[in-house]
Amino acid sequence: MDLSSAVEGDILVVTVNETRIDASVAIQFKDRMREETDAVTGRVVLNLEQVDFIDSSGLGAIVAAMKQLGTNHRMDLSCLNENVDKVFRLTRMDTVFRIHGTVGEALSQ
């Protein structure tokens, strides 16, 4: 599971360098997110620009990644493509996360 991160002020942008977050990588995703966000000081933005498929296990792993941050660090999402957005809307997880169209938009708020 290829994740990379960049610090922008007190915001940590974690980019998923994969096209799929599914049942076969859900646990790795959650573990890698824990490593990437270990030293976070503020907000986390998860950049899903390259992801074109997510299943319910992948969705669960994103929820788990947010929960393991605790209540002091918010996790926002950015750049959901059509199919990923559909899964968030149908499960109403779009009401749980703040979803931004671009990373720039996520950083400016």
Partner: peptide, 25 residues
């Protein structure tokens, strides 16, 4: 039946969405 997500963050479900998605789509 879709899990309720209008709850505290710590209690959010991490599974149980699969068949609700199938039934919706």
């Amino acid at each position: 039946i879709a899990p309720d997500v209008s709850i505290a963050m710590a209690d959010l479900p991490e599974g149980g969405f699969g068949w609700s998605l199938v039934r919706m789509l």
